[in-house]
Design a protein around this nucleic acid. Sequence first.
DNA 1: TTTAATGTCTCATATAATGAGACAATGAGT
DNA 2: ACTCATTGTCTCATTATATGAGACATTAAA
Lengths: 271, 271
Amino acid sequence: MDQGKQDGEAKLATDDADLRGPSRPVGLALRLVERVAEWQPIGASDLARRLALPKATVHRLLLALETFGWLERDGGSRPLWSVSMRPIAVGGRAIEWKSGLRIAALSVMDALRHQTGESIHLGLVDGENIVLIERIDGVNSVNIFLPVGTSWDLSWSSSGKSVLAHLPEGELESFLETPRYRRKSETDIIPVTELRDELTLIRDRGFAISVGVPPAASSSIGAAIFDKRGRPFAGLSITGASDRLREEQLLALAPQLVAAARRISIGMSMD
Amino acid sequence: MDQGKQDGEAKLATDDADLRGPSRPVGLALRLVERVAEWQPIGASDLARRLALPKATVHRLLLALETFGWLERDGGSRPLWSVSMRPIAVGGRAIEWKSGLRIAALSVMDALRHQTGESIHLGLVDGENIVLIERIDGVNSVNIFLPVGTSWDLSWSSSGKSVLAHLPEGELESFLETPRYRRKSETDIIPVTELRDELTLIRDRGFAISVGVPPAASSSIGAAIFDKRGRPFAGLSITGASDRLREEQLLALAPQLVAAARRISIGMSMD
DNA sequence: TTTAATGTCTCATATAATGAGACAATGAGT
DNA sequence: ACTCATTGTCTCATTATATGAGACATTAAA
């Protein structure tokens, strides 16, 4: 069975299609970067085996990617590869540029963290995932510090579900086409239908709640952010350790969160 | 004259060498990603002109990079290109994996921000740059929120200078080989020699200070973090708005900062 | 010591990259 | 409304590189 969606953490790479055709080397190289990021630190042979690619091809690409500064290896006699800082540096520029969102959100997020004491997350939709692009830390003593760049399947995080709930019907359909499961315990799996019901509730209330989301077992309450055309494209959430933020506490934060998300949406529409 | 180093913000890309030879398409594609990140949003022709590459080649690569999910364009009739969330997602994995550092640093950083009230930055050396990989926000009401992924030339930021000061003599030499300037005002440029003097002072005191660093005109005090072999590879800094953190305030924070950086170095050496 | 992996490299062949140029669509200037 | 420089897009003959099987030395484990 295809794993990956079950554990909530989003897959990075595009499907491992055959990739014959134009720009094949580029495609292979990028896939390599993505996979190395996922499996680092990893050896060349191991990588080739997992990708079902010839050893020589992988090796050649690894050397190229090292030359260009995207990958690096440790000094061992059997080198292990990992990604360099380059992708972060590149990604940082991306965040800075989606500044319409970031700038509009920052002051609101700062105010919200002072009101609530909790950490505030800003996520941006990327295909079927939502990526954490900014985090402002709560002033409480115990906090969760998720690294920027963490991404989740839209059906997992509270802000992701908020986005889903406000998606045009057609797009939601095609999202739900790929079967999606959520594992609560080892065997307890929530199927699609229940997610649909939850989305209806979310649309009515204007916010979503998630408890015990990996990788840090955090709990959160999230709301969607809309662009000028009324399309949900990002999410704002209040996130904290599961043992402090139980459903009751989360619900109490709802009004302030929803107001903040709306304020950001409005700020985005004024250009 | 070669700009770029003067404004403190680090260059992303490798040099625009001719790139003939093996893996050329991969090299071109990666350079494209880096440049688009730098200049986004940008059109295809403009990009081709700046890179001195044929329009057709650039166009083909842009389409490929879109297919693979690394670039995207707005819907306009003259599409403008920008980078997707993919690099951040990839980079996030990188950060998570340098977890030796991140994990070791987080609790210390959290403690430090509660002691001082200011924002704490963790930077990782990447070639001649230092990249912000984690930020923990101060509890004060006025704060600077630099995006993770921001990078500076080593000679600019306080933590970068701390790293430089503790570099083996040979490596420092080759770093200073490329002429480096710092612009204080439009015409006031600090040459190499003065930087050398400053590094001596930094080595003696164990910390460095920078005032008015772009892009947010922040001021900071920084100290180097060392690996098991005693090599500086990262930096810790206390950063805030220039108008609150003047040299006097920064100096007062030095003991706590230096202690925290040492604690992280020690934590890293215990594997 | 044996053995099964791994990293590295070479080379003939297949395949894709290359870039000049053509074209229509666009948008700025008048 | 009309001009005209510029843009995005595509084609195609030529050239250059990618490809991947296999060989080899090296390493780590049995």
